[in-house]
Design a protein around this nucleic acid. Structure first.
Lengths: 207, 207
DNA sequence: CGCTAGATTGACTGGTCAGTCAGCCGAACC
DNA sequence: GGTTCGGCTGACTGACCAGTCAATCTAGCG
């Protein structure tokens, strides 16, 4: 009953979709390209998926769920807020480091594509922002972050920065050595938490 | 010689394109929709434009040139760097306030569409980032901004935040009262210049 | 008035794909 | 060996739409 342990063509198709969507963009990727990349007949794609769209939806949701989970995890920890933000940034940047093609598809075709797919997934996307906003507002309540910057606004800046960063790596193929990734992680947090203007000497806080 | 002072159908078509692209998105906007919106025959669109793409390109370049000009202007002034950044932010937010449809098209279909049109216009887009980066690095040389944050990185955060902000207005129709716009202008600058962490009392700088 | 040139019209063509479907293959079970 | 059923195949269809083009209109001009 199992001469070959189920070649899982479904997964193969999904993986091929990542490669093809990343290479050509979702719009100009033909279903036949995905089938070819997966080494599978055209029709089989429709055996496993209802539509071309569904493949992208599935790729996105699968991965985004992990991000939401990780963000929640981070939010629950009792680390200082700066480290929590760093935790979220780390997760995203590491995701890109390990699966650049998948992340490219998610960012370019969903997150940044507010018209088409971003529209559909707006609730999930917002959820991620909200989790960051929560981290910020918790910190504000605890007096660890200034409370005169709206938490949702801060979350927006945070995600704006990270998205822009990934977009840079994706399209201008900024080197992306391990060192670059680490530096970027540090800089996002420093910029957002400390600001661009110089800080007075010492670290004493406003009472 | 001039009973009707040249109805300038070309402009009418371009304006119709703004409306239609903003409403339906570039991709699902048909050329026939634009013609209908402009009250003009289908073929006339191709009398004035080579392709559907060319219309979008023209809409983008026309407006983006203004942004670049304004940014340069701001960069040349001798205002404090914080005010320079505020100047750029103001220009963009005011552009959105006065021509939300056009800005929607530009942001959604070009700036955020790194695959399709963003690709084509990357040099112009980068130029805008570079101008902000210059403002930052000038300030760093003058000791007015910390110099341990890469200027290009700062520019990225700045644009990331603003793009995210406009995207919010565009898609979630966040109110957008005059008050909201003013508040947003203030918050972007505050967040980016001062950071999220509380600042020690007084404003004395690191020596 | 006849002529030219540019503006204007809209039916039509050609190419592109997403999605369908009729049927094939091979494993397991009778 | 026959039957069944899921995985699997790929040629085909139907819809859609950017871009073309031949024809019509209008304005000036000699």
């Amino acid at each position: 009953m199992s001469r070959v342990p189920a070649p899982d063509k479904r997964r193969a198709i999904l993986d091929a979709a990542i490669t093809v969507f990343a290479r050509q963009g979702f719009h100009s990727a033909r279903v036949s390209d995905v089938a070819a990349e997966a080494g599978v007949a055209y029709g089989l794609v429709y055996h496993y998926f209802d539509s071309k769209d569904q493949m992208l939806n599935e790729l996105f949701s699968e991965r985004w769920a992990l991000l939401l989970e990780a963000s929640q995890e981070v939010g629950r920890s009792d680390a200082p807020p700066r480290d929590k933000l760093a935790g979220v940034a780390n997760f995203i940047i590491e995701s890109y480091r390990h699966e650049p093609e998948l992340m490219k598809v998610i960012i370019v075709e969903v997150t940044r594509a507010a018209n088409s797919f971003g529209r559909t997934h707006l609730p999930e996307i917002r959820r991620a922002y909200d989790l960051v906003a929560e981290i910020v507002s918790d910190a504000q309540r605890a007096g660890e972050f200034r409370d005169d910057v709206d938490a949702n606004f801060a979350a927006m800046v945070f995600y704006g920065a990270i998205e822009q960063l990934l977009t840079g790596w994706i399209f201008e193929s900024i080197p992306g050595t391990d060192e670059d990734y680490e530096r970027a992680k540090r800089l996002v947090i420093e910029t957002i938490c400390d600001g661009l203007e110089p800080r007075p000497v010492g670290d004493t806080l406003v009472g």
